[in-house]
Design a protein around this nucleic acid. Sequence first.
DNA 1: AAGGGTCTCAACCGCCATAAC
DNA 2: CGTTATGGCGGTTGAGACCCT
Length: 280
Amino acid sequence: FRLSTIPAHCYHRSLSHFFWFLPDPSPSISIPITSPPVFFFSLDQFLVMGRAPCCDKANVKRGPWSPEEDEALRSYIQNHGSGGNWIALPKKAGLKRCGKSCRLRWLNYLRPDIKHGCFTKEEDDMIFTLYSKIGSRWSVIASKLPGRTDNDVKNHWNTKLKKRMMETQARLSGSHYRSSAPPLMASEPLALTDHSLASINCASIRPTDQIESQSFNGSFDEPLDLRVPRQNPSFLDLDFGSITDLLCSSTYEETIETIWADASEEIKLGELSQSVAYLY
DNA sequence: AAGGGTCTCAACCGCCATAAC
DNA sequence: CGTTATGGCGGTTGAGACCCT
């Protein structure tokens, strides 16, 4: 058994060796009692428990926030900050809410720098561009749109932009742009995963000798230098402020196209697809 | 006006990474 | 060094608004 399966409000770490199971209906496991038991569970009850909840769900309010709750949360955070502990905050602020719920409400709605209202065309374009390159990493996308939250961006994508993209793709079907590249499916964009980020700099991409990375530590915000061999001896040296800058740059497209152009003779398509997929 | 379908978006769920112990 | 607590994130849900017939 793991202690994590016991609700947090039912035990204290220092008391963990006090647990005892009621014989209900008949115990198949017995645990030595080394000290007087302080809590009691039936085995059946224990076995169906999931992960420890972050709060006592029976005693927290759920659903939409009232203006009074908003004001209580806003005024508490403006006066005291979140204190780096959202779980403890609701009690201090006099709210009968789960800490996670308070965090979400503040970050997605109450924060003073939140931008409400319609998305601009520039914002839509940025979302399209980033989504096609990194997939549904909403927090990364939102970080490039001042005042927008990941939840906002996600909702906007799911309700409006996804539909628009499908329509565009349908209109363009038959186009052979980058036809030998791995297909970019609307529902399954090639994601820039942590593994793929690491791969830009690691041996797994080297067999193709297509991309050489001088410095990269796996973060979206760290400077990134790429050296891409071209068909003749020259190299295309690229310096980017960050991975995100690379993804948004026009040079990014050139980089990808260059790699594809160089693929024709020396590298098996499968290997190259792999490499370019990493870059995406 | 009614009611059924669709859209929107706030809120929740559950998993994962990592800090803390 | 193993375990737990917490924050962060993407996916999903559902109530209410809106639209259409």
